[in-house]
Amino acid sequence: MYQGHPALEPIAWILLAIKLAGIPVGAFAFLHAVTQRADAFVAADKLSKNAWMGITGGATLVLLLFHPVGLGTMFWIAGLVAALVYIVDVRPRITDVQRGPRW
């Protein structure tokens, strides 16, 4: 783990927890994109299913490979933002389209 000042060791554990929490977020976004119908993305007026599978798959890979601190910080943040955009913006629209009209 961290080989520095003992007072900084709790911070290292917190950052590890943040990194580990980001990985399931990316994996969830990717798995959701994979399991949805391709026509639902078009009907929801979003990028294609293949585009979102690439974005969320790449985001998951970045979340696995990079750390939230150090030289890979910006890549890690970009991966997390990409996964969260899918979860917060695309996923609800896809779900609504596949659910059908409510009345």
Results as ranks from 00 to 15, higher is better:
M1P: 08
M1E: 09
Y2P: 05
Y2A: 11
Q3N: 06
G4M: 10
G4T: 12
G4F: 11
G4Y: 08
G4R: 10
H5W: 01
A7T: 13
L8I: 09
L8W: 09
E9S: 01
E9D: 14
P10E: 11
P10M: 14
P10T: 13
I11Q: 12
I11G: 03
I11W: 06
A12K: 08
A12D: 15
A12W: 08
W13D: 09
I14A: 14
L15P: 00
L15F: 08
L15Q: 08
L16C: 06
A17W: 06
I18V: 15
I18T: 09
I18Q: 05
K19V: 05
L20M: 10
A21T: 06
A21M: 13
A21Y: 13
G22N: 13
G22W: 07
P24C: 08
P24T: 13
V25F: 12
G26H: 07
A27T: 01
F28L: 11
A29I: 09
L31S: 07
L31V: 09
L31Q: 10
L31H: 02
H32C: 12
A33E: 08
V34M: 04
V34S: 00
T35E: 15
A40G: 03
A40F: 01
A40E: 00
V42D: 14
V42C: 00
A43Q: 14
A43M: 10
A43L: 12
D45V: 09
K46L: 12
L47I: 00
L47C: 01
L47W: 00
L47K: 12
K49H: 08
K49M: 04
N50Q: 14
A51L: 14
W52F: 07
M53C: 15
I55K: 14
T56R: 14
G58S: 13
A59Q: 05
A59P: 06
T60P: 02
L61C: 07
V62F: 06
V62H: 02
L64E: 00
L65H: 00
H67I: 03
P68I: 05
P68V: 10
V69Y: 05
V69I: 15
G70D: 03
G70S: 02
L71K: 04
G72L: 01
G72D: 01
G72P: 03
T73G: 07
T73I: 03
F75V: 09
W76E: 03
W76T: 08
I77H: 00
I77R: 01
I77Y: 09
G79R: 07
G79C: 11
G79T: 06
V81T: 11
A82Q: 07
A82W: 06
A82D: 07
A82M: 03
V85D: 02
V85I: 15
V85Q: 12
V85T: 12
Y86A: 09
Y86L: 04
V88M: 06
V90F: 05
V90E: 03
V90P: 04
V90H: 02
R91P: 00
R91V: 02
R93I: 06
R93E: 12
R93G: 05
I94L: 11
I94F: 01
D96K: 10
D96E: 14
Q98E: 14
Q98A: 07
Q98R: 04
R99M: 02
R99P: 01
R99L: 09
R99E: 07
G100E: 07
P101E: 15
P101W: 08
